[in-house]
Write a protein that binds this DNA or RNA. Sequence first.
DNA 1: GGTGGGATTAGCT
DNA 2: GCTAATCCCACCA
Length: 191
Amino acid sequence: MRSLPESFYRGRGTEEVARSLLGKLLVHETPEGLVSGRIVETEAYLGAVDPAAHTYRGPTKRNQAMFGPPGCAYVYISYGMHYCFNTVCQETGTGEGVLIRALEPVDGLELMRKRRGHVQDHNLANGPGKLCQALGISLDVNGHPLQTSPLYILDAEPVPQVVTALRVGIRVGVDLPLRFYVADSPWVSRK
DNA sequence: GGTGGGATTAGCT
DNA sequence: GCTAATCCCACCA
C-alpha cells in the first residue's frame, strides 16, 4: 500500500474526496508506537460558500493550514479541550477540507486504550476529538503533508456502501448533506 | 436507555 | 463576553 498523493485531494469536488476517504487507513507514527485506523466517517467543509466552515470568513491565524496546499493536515482545538483533524482539499487558498469524524481501530490498540483511558473499544475513535486523542494527534502536525512520516493516509479498497447524511455539531449550514459514513459500520456512533 | 451541565481555549462581535 | 466542526460524567428512567 502507498499513501494517497496530493492529486487525490483536488480536481474533483470536496464532497467526492470526503466520500473517497472512507475505507482509507490513517496512520500516525509516534515515539510510543504506531497507531492506525480505517476511516469510517467524514464531513466536507466547502470554504467561502459554506457558513459552517472555519474558512468561511477568510484566513486567520488558526485556520491558515486550511488555506495551504491540498493533502495537508488542518488541526484545531475544539471547545477548548479537544483536537479535530482535517485534510485540506482543492487548490491552495480555497479553504476547503474534510473533517475525519470516526475511525475503526486497526493497529496500536493497546496504545489507543492507554491514551483514551481504557474505554470500551467502540469508544476509542468514534468521534473527531476521540480519534485525535487515540492517535496522539495534536497541533504539532498542523500543516503536515499527509504523504510522509509521521502522519499519512494509505490507499485501500473503496467501501461497498456509503451513507450520505446531514452534518453534526454545527449551528449553520445544517441542511447540507455533506456527511458520509460506511453503511452498517459498528464504529460509527451517530447514524 | 436518555439527558443536562461543566471543562477550557481561540476567535469574533 | 459569547460561541464553538466535543466529550464525559452524573443522574434519572
